[in-house]
Write a protein that binds this DNA or RNA. Structure first.
Lengths: 335, 335
DNA sequence: TTTTAGCACTCGACGGATAGGAGTGCTAAT
DNA sequence: ATTAGCACTCCTATCCGTCGAGTGCTAAAA
């Protein structure tokens, strides 16, 4: 009970909390002296730490962990929040990416922290259709359409001396053989199986295979990561130091670290506190993530990054609600 | 000569410069006392200011302006820089936007300031071709291809009860009548001229005009602005205060202010110092811009944002070189 | 045995005082 | 016209004393 009170207080004030202020709150019916004794014990057990002698206590990582695992009462969403959520998700949006970006913005607005949203994962996204649209000048637009409704276009140069019927046949083969194949496997499949088949129908197939290769090697791996409210972090007192701001912003500019952080995401809500995050720049932050899915398969992650001193209850409640709503909407949409 | 020395020194050290340190530099052959007299005069004329009595002087906005207009010797690019530049621009890139983004990154790396690049302007970009690619399910991908080589795709829902030939006819009309029209005028033209013509050939033309409208109203106005090295600013001593960092970063998140700042860009290099920028958050910054063009028409802007205390000579030289190279390459490419 | 009151002690934050130094402005000499 | 010299100003850093929040311990109370 005392640990819970300390964490709550610290989350609100960002300052070491002393025995007297706990006692005065009313929900703990003990005198400061008693609380002091307990706090001393809690410190010995590793749940609290003291910035210096004769200062109040602040929760340690272990303390936060215990708080999250055992003491937390997940906050219910306010009506206002739910209403806002409904409004956004109800909008008819044609592309999944637009929606994802919207989600990132809303999340950061509601929490005042930074949100990170990972769009549909490449390895569960499959090819739905390939289209080639001629532009003249030996150029064409290759359209790669995925099962998540995303359309990607790429300009390709068509090899010399290829007849229209040859091109049509090639596209037909691609569609027949590659539909339903995960994007990540396209390349392997192209070389292992399709290339030879194309060779049967088309003359200089080496050139054309190379062209296809260029078209399908997607370069949008970094388009899948969206951030919202990056400057919200600057409001937190733990980022009053410009050096820390810089290292965080530099991190937000990169893609790789986030992929690693999100890679081992299990289904459901996950809370990683401080050094539990493998990236050093956010060792005094906590990252809470939730997954969303399509047709029973997890396809993406939404997350909130805040200081370790973040409002776990509220954020967990929000992410839980959000991820479920997102899943529902996506599934209804793609039926 | 003395003003020049003071500005140079201040740019390097970021600290008020005194008479003694100027005298010691050697290139001004006077004693501190003489320099003091001159400095006093310069202050009276408004070129210098004193943070407080008995501190050194720093250049005022007027001082910077005079320095830039009359005293500046544009720094030549180092061989290294030129080489790096060539390397990037030589790469064969299929989309103009990729190149623009590359440019932003390189600029910020070379200068250690923040770069802002405005891609091909909507009002000089014209439509080259419209294509409709059916997806099944009453859905299709509309492709909008511009003269700058950019392809945009949008998913549209085709109104019920429209025959294939009707659709084909509609697209043919669009291509015949809209090719060469600036993107910004598409909408007006659609309603004023095309709608009635479509009406002659197609039954429920209201629905289809609405669909076309949805497809051509581009939402990528914010895709045209690229930033590079946003965190570079944090290295500058004038941004040791988190509040300033926040107001700058908030500004970088927006699009509108930059459009306004870039709107009245004339051809060639333009230097705007401090409060000459209409946006308050960058009143202690300078913005240097240069334009690039295609077929003689200015189509975009590249710029560097730094503290007023920025290395004008180096940056101006770099931007000049860069914008010319960019123009050359673009023109060669689109011939 | 648990809880509480009392008290001495610690340590950081805040404020005033002081010394040092960089730089100026003025005057008189060169 | 330039320079040396000197008094003066004002910022910065440092030291020191005070204040207050908070602890830890001991002894008394429940």
């Amino acid at each position: 009970m005392i640990l819970s009170a300390i964490v709550d207080d610290y989350i609100r004030s960002a300052e070491p909390v002393g025995s007297r202020s706990i006692s005065k709150r009313g929900d703990v019916g003990f005198s400061p002296a008693t609380i002091r004794n307990e706090m001393s014990d809690l410190e010995e057990l590793g749940f609290l730490e003291q910035p210096h002698t004769s200062a109040g206590r602040i929760p340690s990582h272990k303390g936060y962990r215990y708080y999250v695992d055992h003491l937390l009462r997940t906050g219910l969403l306010s009506n206002q929040d739910v209403h806002m959520l409904k409004g956004v998700l109800a909008e008819r949006i044609t592309e999944i990416e637009q929606m994802i970006q919207q989600v990132a913005i809303i999340l950061s607005n509601l929490t005042n922290y930074t949100s990170i949203v990972l769009g549909p994962e490449v390895f569960s996204t499959t090819l739905k259709q390939v289209q080639l649209v001629p532009l003249g000048d030996n150029r064409a637009v290759a359209l790669i359409i995925t099962n998540t409704g995303h359309v990607e276009n790429k300009i390709v140069t068509i090899p010399e001396g290829l007849s229209v019927s040859e091109i049509e046949r090639t596209v037909a083969i691609l569609n027949a053989r590659l539909t339903g194949v995960p994007l990540l496997q396209l390349k392997a499949k192209l070389y292992n199986e399709i290339a030879s088949e194309i060779g049967k129908h088309v003359s200089n197939y080496e050139e054309i295979v190379k062209t296809i290769d260029g078209a399908i090697s997607s370069d949008d791996s970094d388009n899948r990561l969206f951030f919202g409210g990056t400057t919200n972090m600057l409001n937190q007192p733990e980022f009053r130091d410009v050096e820390k701001v810089k290292s965080l912003l530099d991190l937000l500019d990169q893609t790789d670290p986030w992929m690693k952080l999100f890679a081992n995401a299990q289904d459901g809500i996950q809370v990683r506190i401080g050094t539990e995050n493998s990236v050093e720049a956010i060792n005094n932050c906590s990252l809470i993530t939730a997954t969303y899915s399509l047709q029973g398969k997890t396809i993406g992650t939404i997350g909130i990054l805040g200081p370790t001193r973040m409002e776990y209850g509220k954020v967990i409640g929000l992410l839980d609600h959000f991820s479920k709503d997102l899943t529902t909407i996506l599934n209804r949409w793609y039926k």
